[in-house]
Amino acid sequence: MAIDINKVETIIGEHGKDENDLIQAMLAIQEEFHYLPPEALEKISEQLNVPMIRIYQVAAFYKVFSLEPRGKHIITVCNGTACHVRGSSMLVDQVDRVLKIGPGETTEDLQFTLEEVNCLGCCAIGPVMTIDNKYYGNMSVSKVERVINKYVEKEVVADD
């Protein structure tokens, strides 16, 4: 997958100037592309003057980073304690049944990625699921497919 290298340079320029800014620059790249493309990491290495081995070390350590391309839509199921006792693992199972992806996996058409997160801090309205940073509170197994379909349908409309 080709990426816009000019965009990468602009993002790095906005978020970092030296090695201290490594994580912040990587977060911005991740935010833009939903993963860390190798070309972008090489640019970071060059512009912030950090060896590639340290960049891969950071990428492997922090949970938010992905070295693999991820879906256009990111589904996050909160598995914080409050959501857990209210049955969040059933939501994960249901997403798996609907889209055939487990936590950390991406659909073959690169439309959806499923992730589990420790806590989104919406414990009072758990279990909580988000798609592309839109929050869905008081979720239940029976609502999962309906919510996901909103994003599938949007796609069809856009293609027409």
Binding site: L22, I23, R54, V58, Y62, K63, V64, F65, N118
Partner: peptide, 22 residues
Amino acid sequence: LGAGAFVCGEETAMMASVEGRV
């Protein structure tokens, strides 16, 4: 910004993270 590592709530780990390290 933290990048999703619970251990960074520990103060010496947090400082390492602010410095852009693991």
